[in-house]
Simulated assay, not measured.
Amino acid sequence: MTEPGAIVERLPHGPHGLSREEVRASQQQRILEAVMLAVGTRGYHEATVAHVTTAARVSRSAFYEQYSDKREAFLAAYTAWGRQFFGDLVRAGQQAGSLREIIAASGEVLVQRARQEPEASRAFILEVYATGEPGLQAREEMLRLGQDLFDALAADLQARDPAAVPPVALAGLGVIGASFELCAHVLRHPGDVMLDQVREAIEDLWWVGLTGVSARSRRAGDSRS
């Protein structure tokens, strides 16, 4: 996927020096972005292939050369968007230093994505349920990516502090799922105040999941020491 909110430009008419594979890849990229936009804006059931092809600036035949139907295209877009999203979370953590900074950076990525890409975020967080069992399976895959990220942070915490109590099994699934629900709240109730509240709540969730202690309790303890 490209930068948040961007739709890849249509290829110029006439000779352009691109191979068939490059043309196909460009069309696919535009379709993936357009289907997230269409579904996030109109809802899964109301969005049509025509809405997608119009936004992607591709022909109907070009769409069906790559995907058998709207659901297949949406689930491909959902997976691509989700993998990029979790990749952004990993990169944000790698650029941070302490665990506190990693958690804060991760929370920032979560809420800023909801703010900067509200349509795609709505499609990813809410509309995937409308696709039935295939969508639930795709969502489980994304939650497993979140669980892997959470487990990596827990292992890092254990390496830094062997006395730290390991999180309970599947805590990461709960943390990621709750974080998605908080981001959905931002989508339903946009605004800077709500954004700040959700960012703080997500940070607290991750602290509780990883350490069993909320960020507020930790700050209170730091201030007394």
Results as ranks from 00 to 15, higher is better:
Met1Glu: 10
Pro4Thr: 00
Gly5Thr: 05
Ala6Asn: 09
Ala6Gly: 07
Glu9Thr: 09
Leu11Phe: 06
Pro12Arg: 03
Pro12Leu: 01
His13Phe: 15
Pro15Arg: 15
Leu18Gln: 13
Ser19Trp: 11
Ser19Leu: 06
Arg20Phe: 14
Arg20Ala: 15
Glu22His: 12
Val23Ala: 08
Val23Glu: 13
Arg24Asp: 09
Ser26Met: 09
Gln27Trp: 05
Gln29Asp: 15
Ile31Gly: 01
Val35His: 02
Leu37His: 11
Leu37Met: 12
Ala38Asp: 01
Thr41Trp: 08
Thr41Arg: 14
Ala50Arg: 12
Val52Met: 01
Ala55Glu: 10
Ala56Pro: 03
Arg60Asn: 13
Phe63Tyr: 05
Tyr64His: 07
Tyr64Arg: 10
Glu65Ala: 15
Gln66Trp: 04
Ala76Phe: 00
Tyr78Lys: 03
Thr79Met: 14
Gly82Val: 00
Arg83Glu: 15
Arg83His: 12
Gly87Asp: 09
Val90Gln: 05
Ala96Ser: 01
Gly97Phe: 03
Ser98Val: 03
Leu99Lys: 06
Ile102Thr: 11
Ala104Pro: 08
Ala104Gly: 14
Ala104Cys: 14
Ser106Pro: 11
Ser106Glu: 13
Gly107Trp: 06
Leu110Gly: 06
Leu110Asn: 10
Gln116Met: 07
Glu117Gln: 14
Pro118Arg: 08
Pro118Ile: 01
Arg122Gln: 02
Ala123Glu: 05
Phe124Lys: 04
Glu127Ser: 04
Ala130Trp: 00
Gly132Met: 01
Gly132Ala: 03
Glu133Lys: 13
Ala138Lys: 03
Glu140Thr: 15
Leu143Lys: 09
Arg144Ser: 11
Leu145His: 11
Leu145Pro: 04
Gln147Cys: 07
Phe150Lys: 00
Ala152Ser: 12
Ala152Trp: 08
Ala155Asp: 14
Arg160Ser: 13
Asp161Thr: 15
Pro162Tyr: 05
Ala164Leu: 04
Ala164Gln: 02
Pro167Gln: 06
Pro167Met: 08
Val168Pro: 05
Ala169His: 09
Ala169Met: 12
Ala169Ile: 13
Gly172His: 05
Gly174Asp: 01
Ile176Lys: 09
Ser179Gly: 05
Glu181Trp: 10
Glu181Tyr: 13
Leu182Trp: 02
Leu182Asp: 01
Leu182Asn: 02
Ala184Met: 01
His185Ile: 13
His185Thr: 12
Arg188Leu: 14
His189Ile: 03
Pro190Asp: 03
Gln197Val: 10
Val198Thr: 05
Trp206Val: 04
Trp207Gly: 01
Ser217Ala: 14
Ala220Phe: 11
Asp222Val: 13
Ser223Phe: 14
